Amino acid sequence: MIFVIAWITVLLALAFMFTNGFQDASAIAATFIASRSATPRQGIILVATMGLLGALLGGSAVAFTISGLLSIEPDTQLVFVLLSAVTTATIWNLVTWKFGLPSSSTHSLLGGLIGAGIASGGAGCISWGIESLLFPPHELTGFFKVLVYLVISVILGFIGGYGMRTITRLVLRNAKRNANRTISRFNWIAAGAMAFSNGANDSQKQMGIIALVLLSAGLTASTEVPLWTRAACALLLFAGTLSGGWRIMATLGRRIFRIEPVHSFDSQVSSGAIITTSTLAGAPVSSSHVISMSVIGVGAADNPRKIQWSVGKEILIAMVLTIPATMVLSFILSSCILTCAGGPP
């Protein structure tokens, strides 16, 4: 029975990877396409391909961070916890996609893990990381590490976008109108690099979940990410990106403010730098939120009056609500599953 549940959980994690493609990856393509640097087909194919390469070549540091968030022995109970977490996260992705909100797959997965973990064995089942921060060796670990990087990355997204736009305005103050053609070419490089960074960071979250499921079901002997898992996550991210996510693209690409090639370039460069740094540090961050805030930062530096701040407010509300909402939903779902399975509560 546990093997069946384990493989169902793996399939759900892969489905979550697919939704991640049209959630987070579509946010990357949004400014690239909206700035008319590429056609929709060209933009989606570039982002999907580079995301695929990022997932295949991006390492495993983020995966190990995710797999270490729960202090639960790898057994049947942990499989049920992970099943609840990925189910909740997938549902949340689909709901926010339906309303065209660039919600965070990372936030939804994190909330799902915490809610299910608490339902399984209380708050002690979560690796909060407070002790390792307060006492030697004073390191950022566990949930606190993820939370710090999530918050800082969003703030840096706005600051980075604002800063990049300030710099490019200064550098291009005497540029002619046809400079947009050159900037559009650079956008291909910036968007490709950004998509690679996103693929490297986002795919590892699902890799970590799948590795834990396989270990808990006795199908592997460690949390090392199998090659087939990396390949499957990469392909599902690729497929999810190709599927579009047009509602989210419309929100980021057209509803905040009118994006020109230079705006796309500024956003891609600043976001890519933040996400790449986070990936190297083994910290899962929200690509969609970093990009969203960088777009708002770019617009604020250009002309704050042109920004549709009501759209920014919607995005911020989605940011704030995602973790607590998915925590509650996952707690309820996990409690029901564990009760039916004869475990806690």
Rank of each mutant, 00 (worst) to 15 (best):
F265R: 05
I210N: 01
G299Q: 10
P304L: 10
L46N: 04
Q42A: 11
F186N: 03
I159E: 03
P136K: 12
W246N: 12
P40I: 07
F99P: 07
I210C: 06
N198E: 12
K145P: 02
Q23T: 13
Q268P: 09
H107V: 10
G282N: 11
T277Y: 15
F3K: 13
L242E: 02
S222G: 10
K205M: 12
R258W: 07
G245M: 13
I159K: 07
V320M: 11
G161S: 09
V269L: 11
P344A: 13
G342P: 08
S222V: 12
T322K: 05
V213C: 04
A281H: 12
K176Q: 15
I256K: 09
R36P: 08
R230I: 14
I28E: 04
R173K: 14
C336L: 15
A55Y: 10
F16G: 07
G112V: 08
L140Y: 01
G208Y: 04
R173D: 02
W188A: 05
A25L: 05
S216E: 07
L147I: 13
W7R: 03
A283L: 09
N93I: 06
L11K: 11
Q206H: 11
V320D: 02
G43I: 02
P226N: 13
A38K: 01
G160P: 04
A13Y: 04
L329G: 13
L212I: 06
A48H: 01
I256G: 07
